[in-house]
Nucleic acid binder design. Structure first.
Lengths: 143, 143
DNA sequence: GTCAGTGCAAACGGTTTGCATGTTT
DNA sequence: AAACATGCAAACCGTTTGCACTGAC
């Protein structure tokens, strides 16, 4: 509500700062992302957007998500070969996905700290905690 | 050479134990995997196989890789939305891929130990260290 | 002889792109 | 008016599948 409207306007303001045009499809995509509590695939975003504006095309949604991603306003991650999932940036966290039931969990960023340090010192590799979801089996799907 | 032939025969023997038939395409795929020093995409495996046996089809390679995967003789992992990479099972390790130059590094399994323990205790989640490659920037591509 | 394994070609799902049109600035 | 954003449809890439045929057992 109040907070969500504010968050939406913040994102749109950032777009404007970067000389991007504010259009109806962009408003809709941002609103969907702001009001989403979980991670959405591009297809899910498209479906929700189309409930409000039925003629917004999937390719437009992809282009908008890419634009938001470039500006670091949203983050996407890949779990296995499945569709990528998107959410608003802000909280720093990683992702873990169950290979069996495909539920995705957020993992606090700190959990990756030690791993991150170790990769940096052994390989010089800087870990991107957002971009890929680790996989495994959730508590429910074991055994 | 000697060792590689042995390894190839070991894999084929395991196939036989599981009542799988030993065919020319399977021999070729296994030989390619045995002699590969790095991780190969299905397409790379297909190309190498076709150097020896030009009429082996990509779909057959996929089916053979899947069969070997089911028997835990090979392991595959996904890096972002790119093609999956395959290699013979055996060594236990994770993967880390550079978002910029797409080089994949192997990371000793121990590096994941603490992360693995933490996921288990906080979420009850059992990490699969093989299945997904973490991403980030390699030493060469930073800055 | 039987059935698993194969080649081919077509389908698939997620994503990207070319182009003509529409809309923001 | 100019530049950018959009819709549509087609292309794309990695992967999977249906089917008739071949070849291992």
């Amino acid at each position: 509500m109040g907070l969500e409207i504010t968050r939406t306007e913040e994102v749109l303001a950032t777009l404007r700062e970067h000389a991007k045009r504010i259009t109806a499809p962009k408003r809709a995509v941002v609103e969907v992302l702001v009001s989403a509590d979980d991670h959405l695939t591009a297809d899910e975003v498209t479906q929700r957007v189309q409930q409000l504006r039925p003629d917004v095309s999937p390719s437009t949604v992809y282009r908008i998500l890419e634009e938001l991603d470039d500006l670091a306003l949203v983050v996407h991650s890949h779990a296995g070969q499945a569709a990528a999932v998107y959410h608003l940036a802000g909280r720093s966290h990683g992702h873990v996905t169950c290979e069996n039931c495909h539920v995705t969990f957020e993992v606090s960023s700190d959990v990756f700290d030690r791993l991150s340090r170790e990769l940096k010192s052994t390989l010089g590799f800087v870990l991107d905690r957002h971009h890929v979801a680790l996989s495994g089996l959730c508590a429910h799907c074991q055994g």
